[in-house]
Simulated assay, not measured.
Amino acid sequence: MDWQVCIQYPNGKQRAIRSCKNRETALKYVDAIYTLGYPMHVAYIVRPTPPVDLIGAYTNDLQIIW
């Protein structure tokens, strides 16, 4: 399973900043970030990489020219 290190903002939005194959490696990245200090308004989290909707991604980018 793939894991993402994400930054979570106060409004709840998350943005992936790194992907890892191993959860322990992802957690080590978060630990390394926090050794530099704790940010006031964001959190760093580890989450499973969400599945990709390949059909939806493909059809949304598909352009039909008549």
Rank of each mutant, 00 (worst) to 15 (best):
L62S: 07
T49P: 02
V5H: 05
I55Q: 09
D31T: 02
Y44D: 09
G56M: 05
L54P: 00
R15D: 09
R47L: 07
I33R: 06
I65V: 15
Y9L: 14
C20E: 14
Y29V: 08
P48T: 09
A32G: 11
L62N: 07
W66H: 11
I17Q: 07
R18H: 14
D31F: 13
L62K: 14
N11D: 15
Y58I: 07
Y29C: 05
D53R: 01
A32I: 00
D61I: 01
T59F: 04
T35G: 01
I7F: 05
Y38W: 02
A32C: 03
E24T: 05
Y9V: 02
K28R: 14
H41T: 08
V5A: 04
V52G: 00
M40C: 09
Y44M: 09
K21D: 07
L36A: 12
M1H: 05
K13M: 03
H41F: 11
Q63Y: 10
T25W: 12
T25Q: 14
C6I: 07
G37I: 13
A26K: 06
Q14V: 15
Y29T: 13
K28V: 10
K21N: 14
R47N: 05
Y9N: 11
I65T: 11
A43I: 02
A26W: 02
T25G: 02
A32T: 01
T25R: 13
I64W: 13
L54F: 05
V46C: 11
T59D: 03
Q14S: 09
Y58F: 13
N11L: 08
Y38Q: 07
P10Q: 12
I33W: 05
C20K: 01
A16W: 01
Q8M: 15
Y38D: 09
Q8D: 06
C6M: 11
L62M: 12
V52H: 03
N11S: 12
D31L: 10
T49H: 04
I7C: 12
W3G: 01
L27W: 00
H41N: 05
C6G: 08
N22A: 03
G37A: 08
A32W: 04
P48A: 11
D61S: 14
I33Y: 04
K28L: 08
E24M: 12
R47G: 00
I65W: 14
R23D: 03
Y34Q: 04
L54D: 02
G12Q: 11
I17W: 08
K21S: 09
D53K: 04
V30H: 01
L27I: 04
R47P: 02
D2H: 06
K28A: 14
L36C: 04
A26Q: 12
Y29D: 15
Q8V: 15
I7A: 11
M1A: 15
I55K: 06
C6S: 09
N22I: 15
Q8N: 03
Q8E: 15
D61F: 04
V42T: 08
P51I: 10
E24R: 15
H41K: 07
N60A: 13
D31R: 12
D53S: 07
Y38A: 08
P39H: 12
Q63M: 13
L36Q: 08
L36I: 01
I33C: 00
Y9K: 14
V52T: 06
I33G: 00
I45F: 00
G56Q: 10
A26I: 12
